[in-house]
Amino acid sequence: MAETLLFNALREAIDEEMGRDDTVFVLGEDVGVYGGSYKVTKDLYDKYGELRVLDTPIAENSFTGMAVGAAMTGLRPIIEGMNMGFLLLAFNQIANNAGMLRYTSGGNYKIPMVIRGPGGVGRQLGAEHSQRLEAYFQAVPGLKIVACSTPYNAKGLLKAAIRDDNPVLFFEHVLLYNLKEDLPNHEYVVPLDKAEIVRPGKDVTILTYSRMRHHVTQAVKGLEKKGLDPEVIDLISLKPLDFDTIGASIKKTHRVIIVEECMKTGGIGAEIIASINDRYFDELDAPVVRLSSQDIPTPYNGKLETLTIVQPKQIEAAVENMVALKV
């Protein structure tokens, strides 16, 4: 076991997969000589050379399309979005070509590529650098969407994403890169399509992902002191959703709270609620509650920013109210 920072866990995953398969390469802004804005590709340029760790011009839509073409012809590109928000500029290539081309081509081509990088609300980065594109991209057919949350799952999930034959949007969180965890010395891969039961419990199911997992964990400490026993599930896969795990939990607790960092309108939680209504309505003892970010551009001011995203105290209160059936 070795204590590893999350950004280094990602780096190890990329390094191991590049060593294992020479068709794997990284491209993006400042991934090479500079080593990546969050040092996820540090020193890989020296190790693998300028074609396998390719510094691109600032042309998101075009280098994303280039990765699609490389994937169609047998390579396995990993795009680093310096900030995932920048990939709004690549929306066309991600949606039309990464997501839909396999279907549109009638199965002629597969597109094994990973698009990874920091998303989420950081510390006073302003609206454009604080986006949660997972909600925008969830309607695109053909994409897998994954959010990591710990050094352990970051490494194992990224390895699985690189090996996957489909386009995977892989969300890291800008405030989680320095999380530390002891990682196994042996190689491991974490499946992309399985939610993680962070804490088993019986009173209520809390569905969350990315940084909000840690806000939930903080809230749970307070709830435990009050004698409550929530079940916490990190969704990991935002598309497709792991309804085996979600459903089993609902059948046990009959109550659901969703805690997410995306905005409420058109968010991941909105989709989950609709699906729960389709599948598990009879299991519910209470309406599903979702705690989401406010439907506003993330403000720069620190106090306003704090008000924009869900805080642990709000999660605690929501769980208490639900268990007391004061939803």
Partner: peptide, 23 residues
């Protein structure tokens, strides 16, 4: 869509160079 094939073609061309020079 206008222009969207150009980056894809660029990727195929990059792939040729990658196989020749990186592999």
């Amino acid at each position: 869509f206008i222009g969207e094939g150009i980056p894809v073609a660029l990727g195929a061309a990059f792939q040729s160079r990658y196989r020749r020079d990186a592999l």
